[in-house]
């Protein structure tokens, strides 16, 4: 299995992918701990799984459909009741599109 020890640079990259701020102390700690865990999971490489289908789910379920019927939805006030910040009937966030990223 193609594993190598996760270095600090890789930890920073993964943290960015996960949109997760981590401190420098956490970067060092996670590099060590995650590498230990990755070493442990290496043992899966002992198994020949070329002809084994993956199991994503324990039940043989296919899509479950329902009638496309109109039903009551949550009142806006309820849906917004836990919002950290709101404006009118909306969740409020910082500007998403600016000149640099547009």
């Amino acid at each position: 299995m193609a594993s190598k020890k996760l270095d600090e640079q890789a930890v920073r990259h993964v943290a960015h992918l996960a949109r997760l701020n981590v401190s420098e102390a956490e970067v060092r700690l996670f590099a060590e701990q995650l590498s230990t865990i990755l070493d442990y999971v290496e043992q899966l490489g002992e198994l020949d799984t070329d002809d084994v289908p993956p199991t994503a789910h324990p039940l043989p379920l296919s899509n479950v459909f329902r009638e496309d019927a109109v039903t009551a939805s949550r009142p806006v006030e309820e849906a917004l009741s836990n919002a950290p910040e709101r404006e009118g009937a909306f969740f409020k966030v910082p500007k998403v599109i600016d000149q640099d990223s547009a």
């Binding site: 594993s3 899966l44 289908p53």
Partner: peptide, 17 residues
């Protein structure tokens, strides 16, 4: 890393099941 880790684990899950 998807194939080496996640997909591999899903296949091993089949063997365990």
């Amino acid at each position: 890393y998807y194939e080496a880790y996640y997909l591999k684990a899903l296949k091993v899950r089949t063997l365990i099941k």
